[in-house]
C-alpha cells in the first residue's frame, strides 16, 4: 500500500493550455506512514490511445521536493511547469492524443505513489510552425515516385514473377507425374501466388505509364503542400489525350483519414478510418479524342474544426489530394499527394 496519497489541483481549475504556457497549481500530499522521499517528480507529457500501439513523447519534468515525510502530515507543494512543444490534444475514432500532468513520489522499498490528470493542449490560431508529431515529415521532403523508373521495375518484377511462377508450376506438373499429389499442390499454390502477386504489383507500378499512352502527360498540380483549417484549398488536373478513349470519370478529391497500427511483426494490423472527403472537381463520362484537352480545377473550404495532420510512430492523421482518371477497358490513372493541414 502506498505510504501517501497525492492529488493535483490546478490554479483556478484551468486545464486548457498552449505550448509554452505555464501550468500552475498545487500538489497535495497526505502522508499515511513515515517515508523517505527521494524525489517528488512532476512531469508533463503526451501519449496516444485508441486502436494503435501507444506512442508517447516530450516529457517536461521537474523535482518539487526531496526529503522526509512523517505520518499524519498534510504537505502542499505549489508548482509551475511549462507545457513543452508537442502535438495538440486530439480525439478521433482510432487515434487520440492526450496530454497528462503526472506526479510521482520516488520512495525506496515501497510502491511509488502517483497521480495523473489530463490537460488540454491546443496550438494558438495561426501558429506558424506547430508540432505535428515526432514522425511528421514535410510533404516537400517526400520524393515523388519516378514513374519511368517504376515502369522499369514493373517489367523486371513481371519477368521474375512469370519465370519464378512458371518454374514452380512446372515443378508441380513434374510432381504430379511422379504421383506426388501433395507436392504438386504445394508447388502449384506457390507458383500461382508468386505469379499473381508479381502481376498485381507490376500493374500498380506501371498503371500510370500505361494510362498516359492514351491520356498523354497528365498535369496534376497541388500549389500548396501546407494548408490551414478554415482556409480554401485548391488543386488542378489536366491532360491532352493522344488516343481516343471512353473516360468514365475524372475526379479531384481532398481526403483525410486516421491510420493506426496495432500489434507488431506478422501480427501488425493497420486500421484506417475516413474522417472526410471533399470533391474539388469532377468531370462526368465523356469520349476523349486526340488533342481535345480536359482540365479540372477546384477549391474547397477546409472545415475550421477539421483534424490537423499528426504523425507518430503508429498513429497518424493523414491529409492528401487524390486525382483519378478512369478509362473504360484501359488502365486508370491515379495519383495521391500528401499535404499537411495545420491547426
Amino acid at each position: 500500500m502506498p505510504r501517501c496519497d497525492l492529488t493535483i489541483e490546478f490554479d483556478q481549475g484551468k486545464r486548457s493550455f498552449a505550448p509554452g504556457d505555464a501550468i500552475r497549481g498545487l500538489i497535495r500530499v497526505r502522508v499515511e506512514a513515515d517515508a523517505d522521499c527521494k524525489a517528488l517528480k512532476l512531469a508533463c507529457a503526451w501519449r496516444t490511445h485508441g486502436k494503435g500501439n501507444v506512442d508517447k513523447g516530450l516529457v517536461q519534468e521537474t523535482v518539487l521536493y526531496e526529503g522526509t515525510w512523517q505520518a499524519g502530515e498534510d504537505r502542499v507543494y505549489p508548482f509551475s511547469i511549462a507545457v513543452p512543444r508537442g502535438p495538440a490534444t486530439y480525439h478521433g475514432h482510432l487515434v487520440n492524443v492526450d496530454w497528462y500532468l503526472g506526479v510521482r513520489a520516488d520512495i525506496p522499498w515501497a510502491i511509488d505513489p502517483k497521480a495523473e490528470e489530463e490537460i488540454l493542449v491546443s496550438w494558438p490560431e495561426g501558429e506558424r510552425s506547430p508540432d505535428l508529431g515526432p514522425a511528421f515529415s514535410a510533404p516537400a521532403a517526400r520524393r515523388p515516385i519516378n514513374e519511368a523508373h517504376a515502369f522499369v521495375v514493373a517489367k523486371v518484377l513481371l519477368l521474375l514473377g512469370l519465370v519464378g511462377g512458371g518454374g514452380l508450376l512446372w515443378e508441380a506438373y513434374r510432381s504430379l507425374g511422379g504421383k506426388n499429389v501433395s507436392g504438386a499442390v504445394q508447388y502449384g499454390i506457390m507458383g500461382l501466388s508468386l505469379a499473381g502477386v508479381s502481376l498485381g504489383v507490376a500493374y500498380l507500378l506501371a498503371r500510370n505509364v500505361l494510362a498516359q499512352r492514351t491520356l498523354g502527360p497528365v498535369r496534376f498540380e497541388v500549389p500548396r503542400q501546407y494548408a490551414r483549417r478554415g482556409e480554401q484549398f485548391a488543386a488542378s488536373l489536366g491532360f491532352n489525350p493522344v488516343a481516343p478513349a471512353d473516360m468514365t470519370k475524372a475526379v479531384l478529391k481532398l481526403k483525410c483519414k486516421e491510420e493506426a497500427v496495432s500489434g507488431g511483426g506478422t501480427n501488425a494490423t493497420t486500421h484506417t478510418h475516413p474522417l472526410g472527403e471533399w470533391v474539388l472537381a469532377e468531370e462526368p463520362r465523356r469520349d476523349l479524342a486526340p488533342g481535345m484537352g480536359v482540365s479540372l480545377a477546384g477549391r474547397v473550404l477546409i472545415p475550421a474544426d477539421a483534424a490537423a495532420t499528426f504523425a507518430s510512430s503508429d498513429n497518424r492523421v493523414i491529409w492528401s489530394v487524390e486525382a483519378e482518371i478512369r478509362l473504360a477497358g484501359k488502365p486508370d490513372w491515379k495519383k495521391e499527394v500528401r499535404i499537411a493541414v495545420l491547426p
Partner: peptide
C-alpha cells in the same frame, strides 16, 4: 468532474476507450 465534459470519454466516466491497444 466538469472538465470531463470536454473529453470524449468523460460522459462514460472513462479516461479512454478500454478496448484499444494497451501499454
Amino acid at each position: 468532474d466538469p472538465h470531463a465534459g470536454a473529453l470524449p470519454y468523460g460522459k462514460l466516466n472513462l479516461r479512454r476507450n478500454p478496448f484499444g491497444e494497451l501499454e
